[in-house]
Design a protein around this nucleic acid. Structure first.
Lengths: 250, 250
DNA sequence: CCGTAAATTTCGCCA
DNA sequence: TGGCGAAGTTTACGG
């Protein structure tokens, strides 16, 4: 691939597009260095650089989901020609961090004034699971009654659902939309310990998730935690039935 | 903005570029739906869609660092014209998930065969901090001696550094490159509990991080955890001095 | 392939 | 603004 574009012209266009808060796409051969929360160096290679309207920057290699380098929104962006090379510097304060991009060649430049006011709707979240359980507490077990949704833990943290079982014993429910891990058990045990210190008696601990890791299962007995299998999709179906379909369809 | 490109022609180009494993950039007015681990709907808006060589897909709105929708690498991508609209469907098995993009207009299409073999070097990571401490254990405290780096915890989990203090007492060190949180304290306490169950005696617990959250500080006394202030940048400087600068410069 | 934890995690909510 | 936990987290590294 050969350099198709004059860096000086690109620099001019870039400055203009930045002022106009356009979304900018650059494809080329360049190197990157980052210094801030960490430090990184990326040698010469062909990749894509995008600058968004909020002056966030993402640099994508030809593969993988994640950007290799980036700068969060509201970075101060400088464009210069250094030794004949297009150079982009993005600075951010607090934490102080700087991203430097040095082009050897620019294969492509384009910029767009984009308008995107659409709402983004996400379903089958942990919050959806919580709502379904609050409306149908028997999803946890027969006789379960939520008493507070999201109790504050002293000194910090939140319990997903706090309730009592059929025999009147306190129950702490921790909800996970994905497979429960050992880390999740730790979180729940920490909550139950806090409650016990505060109230004097130890509540039951229930982790509600679509599945659980094998090693986490071993932790269950050790820490007296119960596992209840509930999936986010099932909860979403229940919400749809209860609240009506309209909120959930295109 | 008006639709500049014929969807049928775009579809042809797209299919060709996909076969060639090119990086594809599309800018246009489109809507997105996702169904898989969760469900999401994004209405009509102007945004950028990128398909990478590994057939991962990312969709970016005009603002924010993160993509609004995506599909991880190795998705099966179909391109069709449905009711005159360019439609891209990306499917993945395990977990079964599907992403559907329906264009109203395509403002821009380009594709590039990109070559990027460069190494990516990251510094001031948790691993760097660990190496610095192993080479200079007094960073933790005078008389500290690492005995095993990364002891296997029964039944699962890893300790960053395991050692003994000047008086011969066991010390478990948990390293964090960023501010230590209550979650990090939980992780460390879990390790120490495991060790205590295994060996019968309780080791000292030290969290080494550049700073610590206020609420986490309160947890320190409660769980007998000590905090040692160490920053990743400082550790990186030490590594540079000890191992030489060459590994760390451009 | 599963398990575990890091990450320049980012993001959103709530005090 | 800071603290806290979710996320379609993803990615990397063991066993």
């Amino acid at each position: 691939m050969s350099g198709l574009v004059d860096p000086v012209k690109i620099a001019e266009k870039l400055k203009d597009s930045l002022l106009k808060r356009e979304v900018i796409i650059l494809v080329g051969l360049f190197e990157v260095s980052y210094e801030g929360r960490a430090s990184s160096i990326l040698g010469l290679g062909e990749r894509v650089l995008m600058i968004k309207s909020d002056h966030s920057i993402i640099i994508h290699r030809p593969t993988s989901y994640e950007p290799v380098n980036w700068q969060p929104p509201n970075s101060k962006i400088e464009v210069n020609i250094v030794d004949g090379r297009l150079t982009i510097i993005a600075r951010r304060p607090k934490p102080s961090e700087i991203l430097i991009v040095r082009f050897n060649e620019v294969y492509h430049y384009s910029s767009f004034k984009l308008r995107d006011e659409a709402e983004f709707y996400m379903y089958a979240t942990e919050e959806d699971m919580k709502q379904a359980i609050l409306m149908h507490p028997s999803l946890i077990e027969e006789g379960f009654k939520p008493v507070e949704d999201e109790r504050k833990i002293h000194p910090s943290g939140f319990i997903d659902i706090f309730g009592v079982d059929a025999s009147g014993r306190l129950v702490v429910v921790e909800i996970k939309r994905r497979e429960a891990s050992i880390e999740d058990i730790r979180q729940l045990v920490y909550y139950v310990d806090s409650i016990e210190r505060e109230l004097g008696s130890r509540p039951r601990a229930v982790i509600a998730a679509p599945s659980i890791q094998k090693s986490a299962t071993r932790e269950l007995t050790l820490h007296n935690v119960e596992y209840k299998c509930i999936s986010p999709k099932k909860c979403l179906e229940i919400l749809k039935k209860t609240k009506g379909l309209d909120r959930f369809t295109f």
